[in-house]
Structure formats: structure tokens, C-alpha cells
Amino acid sequence: MRKHLLTAAAVLALGAGTLGLGAVQARAAGELHIYNWGNYTNPELIKSFEKKYDVKVTLDDYDSNEMMLAKIKGGAAGYDIVVPSDYMVSVMAGEGLLEKTEPNQMANFKNINPKWIEVYWDKGRHYTVPWQWGTTAFTVDTAVYKGDVNTLKLELDPPPELKGRINMLNDMNEVINAGLRYLGYPRCNSNKEQLKELSDLLIKAKASWRTMDYATIEKLTSGDVDLSQNWNGAAMRARAQRPTLKYAYPKEGFTGWMDNVAVLKGAPNLENAKLFQNFVMDPENAALISNFARYANGIKGSEKFMDKDMVAAPEIIPPAGTQDPEFVPPCDQKVVDLYNRIWTNLKK
């Protein structure tokens, strides 16, 4: 029995190893290695790119900008494309990690909504093209809370019916920025009095929070919480399963973000990577991206190809009169140190 177990394990290992080698050798002539957020890339998009350019694409996942940065900075060679969020684009470009591919010269550049060209993280689009964009605010169950949802008070000084029924993102910047907006103080703040006030506010509010977690859809749909800080696309998916949920646009302000397709410096397949940047600016392809992950994409004319329920969703199209989302640039190290202290103190 034991001898069998060992033999089987050995055979299994060898077989698996050979299979792995075979897979490597079977690759097509052209390759492209994409490194993107998990569950974020439409397989149809990849298939269609592979077919059009006869390129074999590999797709790997990460779960946060910071993990991706740590890995790229650590010297992980081999990836061509990454999809960093706005602030991360400016960090990576500043660190010389991105290739200047000049998307503004590409054929499909004409499709970009002009609003997304002069952006703080890539003025004039010399490095990146839009992937998807969205907002970060929160979702409330209107069956539980009947009042006006559009205020951060619900997260930070909640009414009795929401106490202990709240999930916040486990994200230092999102939580601190929500607090700063509620208090009316500026972002990337290093004013100690204001930060003291912020810290007290968060510690008091934390008593009313049930959890701090990124898995917001599952928290809301399972009935564990009735309010969750989250992203608009996630809000829409949660609402599909719990129709009384409503995405709030807080009057104190809310975060906007955009993920962007960037090419890494020293990308082994530079030409294919450029082709891919051009490829995602095509309205039909951009719609493929949006239909899969449920966020808007910033490409003109993609609405025609998008799912009908998306074009009309209040999470994607804010009601008239809603203020613009705020895109927050990365803060300097002194601020990050202070935030870090507040965060450690909050969660100790």
C-alpha cells in the first residue's frame, strides 16, 4: 500500500512535470503576458485578441495595487501588461517602471472620451489607456434604513438601526478619506489637530462596524450587514440579489478611480503589448470589458455594445445633480506615516 502510494506520487509528479514542459513548448510564436486584477478580464476579450493577432496570451491575477507594485519592484521580469489604478500609475511612472508607449499616437485613441485624456496620473496619455473606471462610496438596504442615504453620516455616526450592521473596506486610504470628507478636511492631510479629530471619529465609529473586509458583495447578499462601503460595480451586482439595496452618492464627496492598461518597462513582448493597448480602445472590445466586470470604461461609442441593464443602472450613471467623483493622488511619505499610525491605532 505504501509503496504504491509513493510510486503513484512519483508518477504523478513526473507526469505533471512533463505536461508543464509540453505546455511551454506548445506556445504560439507571439506571446503576451498580462497581469491584471482577479476576475476582471473577459475571457472573450482575450480569445478575440489571440485570434486577431495570432498571439498566445497568459493571464495572471493580483488582488491589490500594492502587491502588484511590490512584485514588479522586486524585479519580477516577464509580464508585459499591468492594470494599475490611477494613483498607482503616477507612482509607477514616477519610479520609471512603465514604458512610454505613446497611446495618444495610436489608431484607436480617437475613441477615448476627452474627459479621460488630461488626467492627473498620465497627462495627455503618454503611458496608459483606460480600462475601467468607477466610484467608491457605499450601499445601504433601504428596507432597513428609510431616510436619506446620501450622507457619510450613515457610515461614521450611524442611526440605531444600522449600528453593528456595517461593513467598511479593509483599506486604509478609503476609510481615512471617508472620515476626512465627513469632517470637511482636505485629503493627504498632515494637520495634527485635524488628524486627532479624525482618529477619534473613526475609533468611535468602529464600535458600530461589524466587519472590515473587501468581500462586500458576499457581506451584503448574505445578510451579514445592511450597509457596506463598496465600489459601484459591486453595488450593482449585490443589488441584483438583494433588490432593496441602494448605492449612495454622499453629499460630502466620494472617491473616483480608474484602472489603466500600462506596459511595463522592459516588457519582453513590447509590440504585442502596444497592440493590446490599441485593441482595448476599440468600442466593441471596451464593451466586452464592461459587460464582464460591470464598470464603465471611458471609451466613446461602447454603450452601443453594452448590456442594456448596465446603461440604465443608477450605479453606473449617477442621478442628475450629483457632484463629480474625486480622484485622490498618492500622498507623500509623511502623510502616509501619520495615516499608518492612525490605522494601527484604530485596529490594534
Binding site: E66, D213, N340
Partner: peptide, 17 residues
Amino acid sequence: GGKSLMIGNMIAIQFGN
């Protein structure tokens, strides 16, 4: 519920956020 830090994630966020 993620409301309290452990050594593990305290160290992990030093390499992240």
C-alpha cells in the same frame, strides 16, 4: 471580521499601503 490586526497582516501592510 477584520477589525483587529494580527502580526501577519500588520507586517503585510508595511509592504503594501
